[in-house]
Nucleic acid binder design. Structure first.
Lengths: 187, 187
DNA sequence: ATTACCCTACCAACTGATAGGTAGGATAAA
DNA sequence: TTTATCCTACCTATCAGTTGGTAGGGTAAT
């Protein structure tokens, strides 16, 4: 445990950014949540941009690990695919939060370049995983499955955002169900 | 012409909010764009919350009028439906902006109640219009078409957000095309 | 004695908001 | 037709609070 505070900062920043975005992050509140002073954060992160990038990076790293574990546990790729929307549902369950990178995608113009890069990678990780699972589950050709992977990802992100705007998880569920009915997601 | 500045403020605030959100709005920059002083904005809007609500309200009013005109001009509801994604495309064309209410949906927790209300109405206006057109175009039952309307709206919002995160309008186009292929949107 | 970690005490810049005033046009009573 | 009164639309000056960030010092473990 080289640094407990660093991890605590990262965790608190993640939760805040899922509710208030990158612009909503501030050192004082963050420090208070962790139990240190604002200036002490600078010992772990040289600037807000660095913190933001670290948070976004950790976010896609965790996502990648989680999705990988899903595939390892289950032999059935179709089952994995059906479970995918559950990942985004969890954010809503956690106090009507949304995906960190969805929020930051909205804030894109105001993001420092290093943060932008990590946000982009989050999308890449998700699309790559979906595409891979899609190929395994439906035997589609790579190019086609990549297009479909992107469509699924975008649709789910939109569903999450719309559900947040109503603070209504049930709305998210019906949207996902509608995607299945329409044929965007496997039934 | 009771007040030209009021309209100018509304127009400038709309553009800014589409790029930086409600939190990104500030009186000084806004005033500078309009050509007046920050304090003078208070003559037209009692508070930032009032300004935000007025901007969001004007936004859905304009959208409602535009969509209504679409229906009036064309006799074919299916054609209207096919044109719908074009509305959201225009925001991206305009300097990689997104729908004001998508951004504000992300910021939902930090929004004053009056602003929240107008943001919700924007969704209602869009879903109601889509539902109506869907019924006319596909002869579906109201309940079913409402579910589908919501799905279409959410998917398009997601596509717009994803395209912004890459500053890539072509990505938006391929996503919409994928929705058609998948059967979410009419081909 | 060096490093990791955290502190107090600042700072300049910026935030929404208020107080109080000015210029000019409309209205209406004298 | 002058005078008094009010209104719209803006101004300057200032406020208290918050922001990201810095300087420099303390302390405990290695």
């Amino acid at each position: 445990m080289s640094s407990n505070s660093r991890e605590a900062i990262l965790a608190a920043a993640k939760l805040t950014a899922q509710t208030r975005g990158y612009g909503g992050l501030n050192f004082r509140d963050l420090a208070a949540e962790v139990g240190i002073k604002a200036a002490s954060i600078y010992h772990h992160f040289p600037s807000k941009a660095d913190l933001g990038a670290a948070v976004a990076r950790r976010y896609w790293e965790d996502t990648a690990a989680y999705l990988e574990a899903l595939l390892t546990e289950s032999a059935d790729p179709l089952l994995c695919l059906r479970q995918y929307p559950e990942t985004f549902r969890k954010a809503l369950e956690n106090n009507n939060r949304i995906c960190l990178c969805s929020f930051m995608a909205a804030e894109y113009d105001d993001l420092p370049e290093p943060v932008k890069k990590e946000v982009r990678t989050f999308t890449d990780v998700n699309v790559a995983w979906l595409s891979r699972v899609l190929i395994a589950a439906t035997a589609a050709i790579p190019e086609e499955s990549e297009r479909r992977a992107r469509a699924i990802f975008a649709a789910i992100v939109g569903a999450q955002l719309m559900a947040r705007g109503r603070a209504d998880i049930a709305l998210y569920d019906t949207l996902i169900e509608s995607y299945r009915v329409a044929g965007l997601l496997p039934a």
